[in-house]
Design a protein around this nucleic acid. Structure first.
Length: 736
DNA sequence: GGCGGAATTT
DNA sequence: AAATTCCGCC
């Protein structure tokens, strides 16, 4: 058995959720897309290309046809399919890569959220992976998000036609089912058959279980990778200790099959990890970081395993790792310069972007492959040869030049610092990312076309603020939160510092990057999109503030603040807001990943967050109770009637919440409202409950925090905090 | 090509 | 809810 997971990122099944669509008919388009992406056979039709998570539909008609086959919708065409894809924009599952035809990009965050609704479970000490699921149910297969090179994945033999790979079983299963199912349809069948549709999907069949021994039929699926394997996979994914290089041996010969270009957008990891990243032969998936660096010490926790069916347990740690990996990748490849505004001394990595994507694609290989495939399939290709889109074909190789090469800096990557720590003991220095408020989404865009009821009516400010931030948007990746939390060290620091009331030191290390821009960076025209999508992809990471230059956002923010809190002095309320949006406070010396070097905060930084009390400030007193801002602040407000103060605060909170949710996309879910109502209490993190549960659109990122933070705990803390605040206020008011 | 509204289907 | 189908617009 070759490890199926070997190289790629083993994207946990969740990404795939096959179970959810047993019949295959229910499969969702994005799942289907991922499925195709991971199969080598379809690389001429659709393949990863470009930045992480970005893929190109090389043969739209074919993809549509396949999709139609799967869904038994013979009439399917690219136009329709693309409409469906466009629906994902609002859901943030996908977005369009502007300027590139047929090119879309997955939003990793979203996927994660979607699939890890329960993140909050991390709350528990998590340190211990409770989850370890034993086993396998047939359900899972491995899924790699961005697949590593196919060749790697599949055994040489198999790879051609039967994706024996991990995924295959599922895929097969699904495919089979779907295809067969279609028969029920009336004429449908005929059409499909005609198209060879079935063939397409079934192509893989032949290998069937044979492949990797997965044999075990259902049980055999790699679904459960056994722990060890999975770990390996993960390592790989994270560039773990293992040699990332992957097994050269396994693949290699299938020269023709290798698609240098499509699969590896990133040739080599830009960052030479300890492991000699450079060697990282197989490009990891674009979606996740491929950086081989050691930074992610992946502690193998069995937890990743998916449970059967829709259930799977998830360990926060794993999630953390994923995110980290992702983050890393972001840093490595896609960061927008803006991300670094906060950190002057950090060098901004140049995003690596193959200059000519479009131009470069060449189709020769594709053609060959296609032919091959056709043959295999039994060729019923309808229409003899379907038109290819020559231009789209792959290009030669991207030249990967490591982004960093350009900037050889000592303090290279921000991410690195923290990560590098030698071995990366499982507990790395904790640093937290602040979640960014959800993007406004297209709202803005729409504004142009027509007024959106919602938004327009609202104060502009509120909209922007919204986001998630709310409470706890920040998520701390600290090493194990679990441990941390246990110790009380990090505690979730939910957004509000206030939580600390408990006396926990709050750590604010937050290397924040705004990745959002990643997209922008890569995409040619940022300008128009900026507002909307920027955060989309990684809302998590981007602090809105950072972009000073970004008038747009700032403006909104500003308004928001203004609206909400007219006064500027550090007010508890503001804190919250600020907290969310403010630039990251300088991390405590020990923690700061980025700043390790010299300066901690440089002027710009300060400028941005002048009032923030957030300054974590002195380690010693880190627990500044947020509620009552220092004495100074207190003095000002001191005499405000408790009631009023309280009220104000409360309202603020609510407002925030509301705005947060609202920020989400326009039409996006009404349900949110419901939730909102539900959570009337102040600042709890939304995600903790369930928002996340589905794919809500609610800002995904939130969820993480919850998970990390331990929702309950945080709630409790909040509660405590409120009480405390109240008490405090009472005292203060005595004077009055 | 791409977008997104609207109505309809699953 | 997630498409599918249509369709006008840019």
């Amino acid at each position: 058995m070759k490890t199926p997971g070997d190289n790629g990122i083993a994207f946990p099944e969740w990404a795939y959720k096959p179970e959810s669509s047993p019949g295959s008919r229910q499969i969702q388009l994005w799942h289907f897309i991922l499925e195709l992406l991971r199969k080598e056979e379809y690389h001429d039709v659709i393949a990863w290309q470009g930045d992480y998570g970005e893929f190109v539909i090389k043969d739209p008609d074919e993809v549509a046809r396949l999709w139609g086959a799967r869904k038994c919708k013979p009439q399917m065409n690219y136009d329709k399919l693309s409409r469906a894809l466009r629906y994902y924009y609002n859901k943030r599952i996908l977005h369009k890569t502007k300027g590139k035809r047929f090119t879309y990009k997955f939003n990793f965050n979203k996927l994660v959220l979607v699939n890890y609704p329960f993140i909050d479970m991390g709350s528990t000490g998590s340190s211990v992976p409770q989850s370890a699921p034993p086993v396998p149910s047939g359900a899972g297969t491995h899924f790699r998000f961005p697949p590593s090179t196919p060749s790697e994945v599949l055994s040489p033999n198999e790879d051609l036609r039967s994706p024996g790979g991990m995924f295959s079983s599922v895929a097969r299963r699904m495919a089979r089912g779907s295809v067969s199912d279609c028969s029920d349809g009336t004429s449908v069948n005929s059409e499909i058959e005609e198209g060879n549709t079935g063939a397409g999907e079934e192509r893989g069949e032949r290998g069937v279980s044979g492949g990797g021994g997965s044999g075990g039929g259902g049980g055999g699926y790699r679904s459960i990778i056994h722990p060890r394997l999975s770990h390996e996979a993960l390592f790989r994914m994270y560039g773990g200790p293992g040699n990332p290089a992957g097994h050269p041996g396994s693949r290699g010969h299938t020269g023709h099959r290798i698609h240098p270009d499509s699969l590896s957008p990133f040739p080599v990891s830009p960052l030479p990890g300890p492991g000699g990243a450079g060697l990282l032969a197989p490009p990891l998936s674009p979606a996740l970081s491929m950086t081989p660096t050691s930074h992610l010490p992946y502690t193998p926790s069995p937890t990743l395993s998916p449970m059967l069916g829709s259930h799977f347990s998830f360990n926060p740690e794993d999630m953390k790792r994923y995110l980290q990996a992702h983050t890393q990748s972001v840093y490595n490849y896609g960061l927008s310069p803006r991300a670094f505004l906060h950190y002057p001394n950090i060098v901004i990595p140049q995003p690596h972007r193959p200059a000519a994507d479009k131009a470069g694609l060449s189709g020769e290989r594709g053609a060959a492959e296609r032919a091959e495939r056709a043959a295999t399939a039994g060729g019923g290709e309808r229409g003899g040869e379907r038109h290819h889109h020559p231009p789209l074909a792959h290009s030669a190789h991207h030249h990967p030049h490591p982004p960093h090469s350009a900037h050889p800096h000592t303090h290279s990557h921000p991410m690195h610092h923290p990560l590098h720590l030698g071995e990366e003991p499982p507990h790395m220095s904790p640093f937290k990312f602040k979640l960014q408020p959800p993007p406004l989404g297209r709202k803005h865009r729409e504004s142009q076309s027509q007024s959106k009821p919602r938004q327009s009516s609202l104060s502009s400010g509120s909209g922007s603020m919204s986001s998630t931030s709310g409470l706890g948007s920040s998520l701390s990746f600290g090493s194990d939160l679990s441990s941390a939390s246990g110790s009380g060290l990090i505690s979730a620091s939910s957004s509000t510092q206030s939580l600390n009331s408990a006396g926990l030191p709050k750590i604010k290390v937050e290397p924040i990057s705004d990745i959002e821009s990643e997209e922008e960076v890569e995409v040619t025209d940022i300008s128009d999109e900026d507002p909307d999508e920027r955060d989309e992809e990684f809302e998590l990471f981007s602090p809105r503030h950072s972009r000073a230059p970004d008038h747009h956002r700032q403006h909104h923010q500003h308004l928001a603040n203004g609206t909400a809190a007219p006064q500027h002095h550090p007010h508890p309320d503001e804190d919250l807001d600020e907290d969310v949006f403010k630039a990251p406070a300088p991390p405590p010396p020990g923690l700061m990943p980025f700043f390790t070097s010299q300066h901690t905060h440089s002027s710009p930084l300060h400028r941005m967050l002048p009032t923030l009390k957030s300054e974590p400030t002195e380690p010693g007193d880190s627990n500044t109770p947020p509620p009552q801002t220092g004495s100074a602040g207190a003095s000002q407000t001191k005499c405000i009637p408790l009631k009023l103060r309280f009220k104000r605060r409360w309202s603020e909170d609510q407002r925030m919440e509301a705005s947060q949710e609202e920020s989400d996309d326009k039409k996006v879910r009404p349900e949110e409202e419901r939730e909102r109502g539900r959570q009337s209490n102040g600042r709890m993190e939304m995600e903790e409950d369930g928002t996340g549960s589905g794919e809500g659109d609610s800002p995904p990122p939130l969820a993480y925090e919850g998970s990390l933070a331990t929702p309950l705990a945080s709630q409790r803390r909040v509660s405590a905090e409120l009480h405390r605040a109240t008490a405090q206020l009472s005292l203060e008011n005595k004077d009055c």
